[in-house]
């Protein structure tokens, strides 16, 4: 087990959570980002965890990706996962309208759990290499993103188009929010919570 001291020495961690319906390519995006590999065969995810060091604008940070299950079977345990997330990549497939409609639900669930309107959130339209099978128009998706006040990016886990972009954009957003947080209430954030628990003891 890594000791707490070594953990503290590690660069700052940004926790990213992949959400979206089953089969839209969350794991594919993650694996493409992490290991530059494209997995052809589909195997439903339960909950996968990834973490690696990346250079974000010259600064070494760690990205922790929680790849969640898209299947409805696991909908009940999502709450727990969402709580720990700092940023969300809400993925749908441009070839599947149902997956696009489902993003609305995910968005609502995240806002309910986080109890915060102002979170790092990116709407991602995956499988943009399959343009000929497109079911969700660019405008439709852009409208929804605009309505939510979040960026919309189209990606392809197969061709790696915009894959790095979505992760780095999200990390930048997370970083800027964290900096805002420390600025607005400098003394309070995490240490305060720890103290509170000690008090219970």
């Amino acid at each position: 087990m890594a000791s707490k001291a070594t953990k503290a020495a590690q660069p700052v961690v940004h926790k990213v959570i992949m959400v979206g319906s089953g089969g839209v390519g969350k794991s594919a995006l993650t694996l493409q980002f992490m290991y530059d590999e494209f997995v052809e065969d589909y195997e439903p995810t339960k909950a996968d965890s990834y973490r690696k060091k990346v250079m974000l604008d010259g600064e070494e940070v760690q990205i922790d990706i929680l790849d969640t299950a898209g299947q409805e079977d696991y909908a009940a345990i999502r709450d727990n996962y969402f709580r720990s997330g700092e940023g969300f990549l809400c993925v749908f497939s441009i070839t599947d309208d149902d997956s696009f409609q489902a993003t609305q639900e995910f968005r609502e669930q995240i806002l309910r759990v986080k109890n915060d309107e102002n979170i790092s959130f990116l709407l991602v339209g995956n499988k943009c290499d399959l343009g000929e099978r497109r079911k969700v128009s660019l405008e439709e998706a852009q409208n929804r993103a605009q309505q939510w006040g979040v960026p919309y990016i189209e990606t392809s886990a197969k061709t790696r188009e915009h894959v790095d972009k979505v992760f780095f954009d999200l990390m930048r957003d997370i970083r800027s929010r964290k900096m805002d947080e420390t600025k607005t209430n400098p003394g309070k954030p995490k240490p305060a919570r720890k103290k509170l628990k000690c008090a219970i003891l």
Binding site: S27, M34, Y35, K46, D48, S49, Y50, R51
Partner: peptide
């Protein structure tokens, strides 16, 4: 090791480890 799929499970879970 930088990735584990899935990240939890009972004994005997088939775990894919990446890194």
């Amino acid at each position: 090791v930088t990735g584990v799929s899935p990240k939890e499970g009972p004994p005997g879970t088939r775990v894919t480890i990446r890194g």
